[in-house]
Amino acid sequence: MVAATTTWFYACLAEDVPENGGVCVKYNNEQIALFHFARLNEWYATQNECPHRNQMALSRGMIGTQGDEPKVACPFHKKTFSLKTGECLSGDECAIKTYAVKVEDGKVYIAIPG
């Protein structure tokens, strides 16, 4: 759900993001991990910081699925988080923030809640 006050932030060109991988987007002083899950034809965005050790690393993690749930694994200790809900799928780390993403004319936008 995207709230009415949402602003769409232009992140990068779709081609700047590797297929089935992620990049880190700078938004003011925040870091957002942006993923192009090409196999699912989906785009996802989450906070870049892994809450386990507060490392700015999720964008460099491997993505995949657990059952039907798309997920990302942090490069540091392989904690996994749902790309849809942000819920931690391994152990009891806290959930991560997720953002809506849209692609128009080859440009990727991330929804910033107002």
């Binding site: 196999r39 699912l40 491997m62 995949g64 699925t65 657990q66 059952g67 798309p70 694994a73 996994t80």
Partner: peptide
């Protein structure tokens, strides 16, 4: 991707990749 399409199912993970 070719291996996953031919021999696997789903969309991979940090173990099989």
């Amino acid at each position: 991707d070719a291996v996953l399409d031919k021999l696997g199912n789903g969309h991979g993970c940090e173990v099989c990749k």
